[in-house]
Design a protein around this nucleic acid. Structure first.
Length: 759
DNA sequence: GTAGGGTTAG
């Protein structure tokens, strides 16, 4: 029997193949049927043109890349056209590594690179920001004799620009025999992106002198380039130039110029563009609409944002996202949540950006529990988090020390292979440090393939918060040896670490080094650290002198640091000075009055105590309620001082009474030093029920098995009495306790605290 | 099957 198909079959098959080639949009089924027939008849192998058409359909229309690859592999002698088809499909789907791997396979199969496939490969290497790959391709272009081909040449220029090698790009540009609009536009955009306004404009003029007219891409490349380098005013100027020279803006230029207008918060210009957009008929371009909403948001016009959105027929998700982000940016958290729910209710298909925006909105505005809940909802909705979502979520875990939630986010990053992203890893370092796991933070930090100043600061801040001054200083030196320049936050962390450990001389050393060697002038937070350091070390006069030397008006943090130190060292005179300033700066902060009252009470100055109490009463001030969080079995519990509504309250109080009795039996008297004597009835009740950190600790003790470490977060400084009780509990119950207050970590173990009672 | 430009989340 002949292996060739019967004549009738040939007719059918050729008809099928013909249909396939002529049909611009076949369905997957039609494609697969044609494929099957061609395969069965053996004709597939005879027509490279047909098989390449199949390759294109599988990869570019249906994204069935493994089917496309196996088809390609089955072809006895695919040509460079077949390879190019699949290589460019990979690139179009952002699969740049696969694209380049296939390009390599094409070369090793003996096919030479041609001027069609080379630009695609170069573009893939640019998209991966890989200079080494780009250089190899440059060399290959030369050796294969295609380097002067205009498309190859332009792609190489763009590759060098993308890899921040403007000089190499310019050399290549100069060597170009026939410069075209594409290469000029690339160079202009390249300079604009670097903020080299003069060079970009100069190139633009040179291009016109050479007789070439810009097109919309040339103009837009310049506008978006200037936006990229934060030269927003220059963007606006270019847009005006474009307009006055008779070039009608397109969607891209409208989107970009709106973004620039928002960034310089120029509402007048923004509104002009709004009118222009409507007149030019771009009010339906989704990118332009979302850029317009973004502009209004950045200028602080919340109402207009929602108006623009509601005026559009059929809201697109990017515009909805811009509304949520804009409300969040303006601190309108409740409105952002309401709009988010409204969009959800309207059946708008919310994407990862929508969810990330609302999670960020919550975690940046003190709604940490809500952020965690939204993350859960997002997963339930089947939307997968990415490398931006996680750094937005993790601060919420860190804020309330939700270690289990943080850990599960960490696992997620490992599964999705995003754990090494510099933003993700930095946020993980911060989260672990703030949840008391300083060693885990360090392991992640050490494993990072690349770090930026934020990563170093997260680790430095962690050591500082844990009172590990020596580690902080060692890391700070490692940071400099690694070539990373410290910024003002790095110095704040190191100074805070010195302050936690009472290292006065080291503190002065870094404080002076900062301006002298690093050219960073001292900011408010640096002074606050120094005042805290000097004050707590008992050098109150020196601290006060430093305040007087400051070149700008000290804020409440600086005076607050002095007042707290006066409280510790019983200095009435300076305490009164600091308190007076604080009453002016923060009239509503009851904590300052309480501190001053404590200073008086400690010295037995009862009329002073009465005066402060009367003032507080007259102003209607109440102590900021203490609040603590503890995570027990994956659930975060929030406890307020004097909380009488907790379902386990009686058990908690029973536990605290039992502990108190044990302490008395062993001769440990709870410190009454920290108790305000002239307390209101309500405060007395609160004291009776206990501070929130004690309640949280007791809740942890009765709900976890013996020996389980407990982690408590408090919104205020830990009080002396609670500190003493926790030291006792760590020994008596054999528990490790981690308490994070507003200032630092206290790690209680075997009756001792890591702060060595210095805080 | 080839080169240059856009909006919304860190």
């Amino acid at each position: 029997m002949s292996l060739l198909p019967a004549p009738s079959t040939i007719t059918t098959t050729t008809t099928l193949a013909y249909t396939l080639l002529r049909n611009p949009f076949p369905t997957l089924l039609e494609t697969q049927q044609s494929h099957a027939h061609l395969l069965k008849t053996g004709l597939l192998l005879l027509s490279l043109r047909t098989s390449t058409k199949l390759l294109s359909l599988y990869s570019s229309s249906f994204h069935l890349f493994s089917d496309a690859i196996s088809l390609l592999s089955s072809l006895p002698s695919p040509d460079s056209f077949s390879f190019s088809t699949l290589i460019s499909s990979f690139s179009h789907s952002q699969l740049f590594s696969s694209s380049l791997l296939l390009f390599r396979r094409m070369l090793s199969s003996g096919l030479p690179p041609d001027p069609f496939v080379l630009p695609t490969a170069v573009k893939a290497s640019s998209s991966l920001f890989s200079l080494p790959l780009g250089r190899q391709l440059h060399a290959l272009s030369i050796s294969s004799g295609h380097s002067s081909h205009p498309f190859v040449h332009s792609s190489l220029i763009h590759m060098y620009l993308t890899c921040n090698r403007i000089t190499d790009a310019h050399l290549l540009f100069d060597a170009m025999p026939h410069r075209n609009l594409v290469s000029w536009s690339s160079m202009i955009a390249g300079y604009a992106k670097l903020g080299r306004v003069h060079d970009a404009r100069h190139m633009f003029d040179q291009m016109r002198h050479s007789g070439l007219d810009p097109n919309s891409i040339t103009w837009n490349g310049m506008i978006t380039g200037f936006n990229h380098s934060s030269c927003f005013l220059d963007s606006l100027f270019v847009f005006s130039d474009m307009h006055s020279q008779g070039f009608g803006p397109d969607g891209t230029s409208f989107s970009s110029v709106l973004s620039a207008a928002g960034d310089v918060e120029n509402i007048v210009f923004g509104k002009q563009i709004h009118c222009y957009v409507i007149k030019a008929g771009f009010g339906i371009d989704e990118c332009v609409v979302s850029a317009m909403i973004d502009m209004y948001g950045k200028c602080g016009y919340a109402k207009e944002m929602v108006q623009v959105l509601d005026e559009v027929d059929g809201m697109d998700v990017a515009s909805c996202n811009a509304v949520v982000a804009g409300l969040s940016r303006n601190g309108l958290v409740e409105d952002a949540l309401r709009e988010f729910r409204r969009f959800e209710g309207m059946g708008i298909k919310l994407n990862v950006i929508s969810w990330t925006s609302i999670i960020a909105c919550c975690s940046q505005n003190g709604k940490d529990m809500e952020a965690l809940e939204l993350f859960r909802e997002m997963q339930m909705a089947g939307v997968e988090a990415n490398s931006v979502t996680i750094p937005c979520l993790l601060p919420a875990c860190a804020n309330i020390a939700a270690l289990m939630h943080g850990k599960s986010a960490h696992c997620f990053t490992l599964r999705r292979a995003i754990s090494e992203d510099v933003y993700v890893a930095s946020a993980l370092v911060d989260m672990y440090a703030k949840c008391g796991r300083i060693n885990n933070a360090r392991s992640i930090f050490d494993a990072m393939p690349s770090r930026n100043v934020v990563s170093w600061n997260a680790m430095l801040g962690g050591y500082s918060m844990h009172g590990k001054a020596k580690d902080a200083m060692e890391l700070f030196h490692l940071m400099q040896r690694s070539g990373q320049k410290p910024d003002f936050i790095s110095f704040t962390c190191v100074l805070a670490a010195c302050s936690q450990a009472g290292l006065v001389e080291k503190g002065w050393y870094y404080f002076n080094k900062m301006s002298r060697e690093h050219g960073i002038s001292a900011r408010m937070e640096h002074y606050a650290c120094m005042i805290c350091l000097l004050g707590r070390a008992g050098k109150l006069e020196e601290a006060y002198e430093l305040i007087k030397e400051m070149a700008f008006e000290p804020d409440a943090c600086v005076w607050g640091a002095l007042l707290s130190s006066c409280r510790v060292h019983g200095n009435v005179m300076l305490g009164e000075i600091a308190a007076k300033k604080l009453f002016e700066l923060e009239p509503g902060n009851a904590g300052n009055y309480v501190l001053l009252s404590n200073i008086y009470a400690n010295k037995g100055i009862w009329d002073g105590v009465d005066r402060v109490r009367d003032t507080m009463k007259g102003m209607g001030l109440k102590k900021n309620p203490g609040c603590s969080w503890i995570e027990i079995k994956n659930k975060v519990h929030m406890l307020l001082a004097g909380d009488k509504t907790h379902p386990q309250l009686s058990k908690i109080l029973e536990k605290l009474e039992q502990l108190s009795a044990e302490m008395k039996k062993l001769g440990c008297n709870p410190s009454t030093d920290f108790v305000l004597h002239n307390v209101e009835e309500q405060d007395k009740e609160q004291m009776l029920c206990g501070h929130s950190e004690k309640l949280a600790m007791a809740l942890g003790l009765i709900n976890t098995s013996p020996g389980t470490p407990l982690r408590v977060i408090k919104n205020l400084r830990i009080c002396g009495d609670c500190h003493a009780v926790m030291k006792f509990v760590s020994k008596f119950e054999g528990r490790e306790l981690f308490v994070r207050d507003t200032n630092r970590f206290h790690h209680f173990k075997d009756g001792e605290c890591s702060c060595r009672d210095y805080w």
